[in-house]
Simulated assay, not measured.
Amino acid sequence: MRRGGKRDIAQEITNLIIAKIEQGVLPWRRPWRSLTAGGRPLRAGGQAYTGINSILLWTIADGNGYRSRFWMTERQARELGGRVLKGARPAPSVYFNTMRKTAEPTLAGEEGGVRFIRFMRSYLVYNCDEIEGLASHFHPDPLELVAPDPSEHQAAIDAFFGPIPIDMRQGGGRAYYSPGGDYVQMPPKAAFISSDHHAATLAHEYAHATGAAHRLGREFGRRFGDKAYAFEEVVADMTSGMICSDLGLPCELHDSHASYIEHWLSILKADKSAIITAAAKAEQAYKWLASWSATTRQIERSESHEAPLPAHA
């Protein structure tokens, strides 16, 4: 943001990308199909944005749920017969330029040298979802999503998640747990690559929900300090892995695992006993979620007889 000085576009872009990564889902790599039109963001003339503009506008479109791939300035919109809607949210598009600067002559009268200074500038663009009056090709056709085939483990998945008393809502293009509203938000199941991917993502978000004060009251205190968020991601990731294993699903289903590598490393390098704590917290989360389903009753009966865990249908 600009406050009486130059706008630091590079910092704004960096902050936005970091925020997206910390949400646990990279807009260019996730286990569900985006509700936005596929492909790189496009300029008014149809040319694809490149470099940081591509990543930046992709991220903003994902966060705001835009479906159009096209972006343009307010002036371009007017020239094409369109009008930017009131309240539309502009996004920065950056470009680099070079300035030629000649140094002052020296005291001895010698001519100064010439320097070329590279600098970055930005201008504002709007997504065509927030521009009316444009030709139809700037707006994609309604996206028809077809629900994926049921998983071969669907009965076990339904038995596990069905009884859990956590509010789960569907819609939009993001998966997350809302602490304030105490609900899990999921994209429509039809947007997922497979039913197994849907289950793996749901497991991760339900794991976050177990940490609420009225459930397990998961807190990390001073020990983890500013790394508490990263630690929570590790716990949710491990919990999801336990659930996937229990249901017979591949644990690598969650395509955003790569975005958690930094979380894992930052925790493990700082505290050699952190992995032990994380495993214990994840086990608590898993048992709380499983306690609502018939699965846990089977496990408890097995453990009481010291028999192997039964395979799920």
Rank of each mutant, 00 (worst) to 15 (best):
E130G: 00
E132F: 05
G133I: 02
L134P: 00
A135H: 06
S136D: 14
F138P: 04
F138I: 05
E144P: 06
V146E: 11
V146Y: 04
V146D: 00
A147E: 15
D149R: 11
D149T: 11
P150N: 07
S151I: 05
A155S: 15
A156P: 03
A156F: 09
I157V: 08
D158C: 07
F160A: 00
I164V: 15
P165C: 14
P165H: 14
I166F: 13
D167G: 05
Q170C: 14
G171M: 11
G173K: 02
R174H: 11
A175Y: 14
Y177A: 04
Y177C: 01
P179W: 10
G180C: 14
D182P: 10
Q185K: 10
P187W: 12
A190N: 03
A190D: 01
A191S: 06
I193G: 07
I193D: 13
S194A: 04
S194I: 05
D196Q: 12
D196R: 12
H197I: 10
H198E: 13
A199T: 02
A199I: 01
A200M: 04
T201I: 12
H204V: 01
H204Q: 06
Y206P: 00
Y206L: 15
A207M: 11
H208V: 08
A209E: 04
T210W: 07
T210L: 07
G211W: 06
A212L: 13
R215A: 08
R215Q: 10
R215S: 06
L216Q: 08
L216H: 07
G217H: 07
E219G: 14
E219H: 15
F224N: 09
G225Q: 04
D226Q: 02
D226F: 01
A228G: 10
Y229S: 09
E232G: 14
E232N: 14
E232Y: 07
A236S: 06
M238R: 09
C244K: 05
L247V: 03
G248W: 06
G248I: 05
P250N: 13
